[in-house]
Design a protein around this nucleic acid. Sequence first.
DNA 1: TAGAGTTATTTTGACGTCAAGATAAATGGA
DNA 2: TCCATTTATCTTGACGTCAAAATAACTCTA
Lengths: 161, 161
Amino acid sequence: MDHVSRILEQWHRERPDLDVTPMGLLGRLGRLHAHLIREVEAVTGSYGLNRASFDVLATLRRSGAPYELSPSDLLAATMVTSGTMTNRIDQLEKQGLVERIPNPEDGRSVKVGLTDKGLALIDQAVTAHVENQHRLTAMLSTEDFQALDTLLGKYLTAFED
Amino acid sequence: MDHVSRILEQWHRERPDLDVTPMGLLGRLGRLHAHLIREVEAVTGSYGLNRASFDVLATLRRSGAPYELSPSDLLAATMVTSGTMTNRIDQLEKQGLVERIPNPEDGRSVKVGLTDKGLALIDQAVTAHVENQHRLTAMLSTEDFQALDTLLGKYLTAFED
DNA sequence: TAGAGTTATTTTGACGTCAAGATAAATGGA
DNA sequence: TCCATTTATCTTGACGTCAAAATAACTCTA
């Protein structure tokens, strides 16, 4: 009897008129997410990066050399608002991990590029992060992992594409 | 080719030394969660409640009459810190949805109770919320729903219990 | 080539959260 | 009974996020 099952039982007793079947799945997904976030941040944090900073650096890194993207590109990749992205870039710039490079052909736009320091840091941090992700999925059997991944992918396409 | 698959491809090209298999599952779970949160908040928001306020009221409601729990009880149910809970209760008290009831037997502790207004509101809001949850899982077949729920439950027990 | 509309980014102000510490009350062993 | 310890809750200050508005530069059409 897990935490979520207890919640469903309570609703069943208090509001028998409601069919709370979907709440179980959504509740489990939410709690799982919260646990995973916490574990992920513990590792990125050990490199002085919160998830926000980590995501921006990782997005730049995986975009390939010269490791430069516009704020709009970063926005499209990260599900946050433009103001949030400005703030994230500000923080990273203060730490010397990225730099803003003006675009000579368009005065409105900017490129955000990894500095040498930023590149070195994110390469280290990603290595540790991926190791951590292995640890965080190691409790799933190969079959369960595959099945879960497939189902999540199916579900996700209902919201993306 | 979904968003997450593109990310994995990029990593494969840029850092072929890394086995990023787990990143796919964790990334999909994260994005799915973000989409679901957004949808859930759209409905709770139409009752003037953010997810924080909704969660507290719902926890009190499903605890059964007399709809009273201590801040510590609420804390245990909601995965947030004590300071956050104090703030949530403050907000709800300002809106007249809950009240703090001193415990005559223990001067340190308090009961947080639903007001009539709070009870009426959360009963309405939960009804709409559950309907919304049905909508948000309607794209899954019965089999997929069952399988996903089971797998999430299995995974979750690695972090709880 | 002037002006309206669009695009890219930043600013502003409010809000929710957290970690760490403060406060206040209860407990329990000497 | 006293005092150190524990428990319950709240306070503080910093931070990340958002929605909405502001700024600045580009584009397109008449």
